[in-house]
């Protein structure tokens, strides 16, 4: 099962990220992990939350532009070489990763174009998925 990743458009302005965090906090939505990418005067915030549907609705009401996309979420064993092992499997199958980030625990989120295929490959290789 892919994870539903919620993305938010943010203008590069003081307090915008705090505003997002507040909206989630006020409704008791847990933020399990996130990453940001910035351009000249805006950025995008990608996150995994406990209730995507509700979070998206709240953010929309708060005037944010949002997007939801599937991503692969993997439980990584916490020991040297583990990330390499996973990436090597994917590289050998010619799979390009658009971006990757760590979320709470030892989980990582990968964005790829064919989520289903990548999940299949990972399962074949005994890598634990989470959603």
């Amino acid at each position: 099962m892919p994870v539903k990743q919620l993305t938010v458009f943010l203008e590069n302005q003081t307090g915008r990220l705090a505003e997002v965090a507040k909206i989630l906090k006020d409704e008791d939505i847990n933020l399990q992990g996130f990453s940001t990418t910035e351009a000249r005067d805006y950025g995008i915030l990608r996150m995994v939350v406990s209730d995507v549907k509700k979070a998206r609705q709240l953010l929309k009401e708060g005037g944010f532009t949002t997007h939801v996309a599937d991503a692969v979420c993997i439980e990584v064993v916490d020991r040297p070489g583990e990330l390499y092992r996973i990436l090597d499997i994917l590289a050998n199958r010619d799979i390009n990763i658009d971006y990757i980030y760590v979320i709470a625990g030892t989980r990582i989120v990968l964005s790829v174009s064919d989520v289903e295929r990548v999940e299949g490959i990972l399962v074949e290789n005994n890598i634990k998925l989470c959603s």
Partner: peptide, 16 residues
């Protein structure tokens, strides 16, 4: 101009 959901995705490239 304002970013609507029609153009927004999780990829920076799309926006750029």
């Amino acid at each position: 101009v304002e970013v609507s959901e029609d153009v927004f995705s999780e990829k920076m490239n799309d926006l750029e």
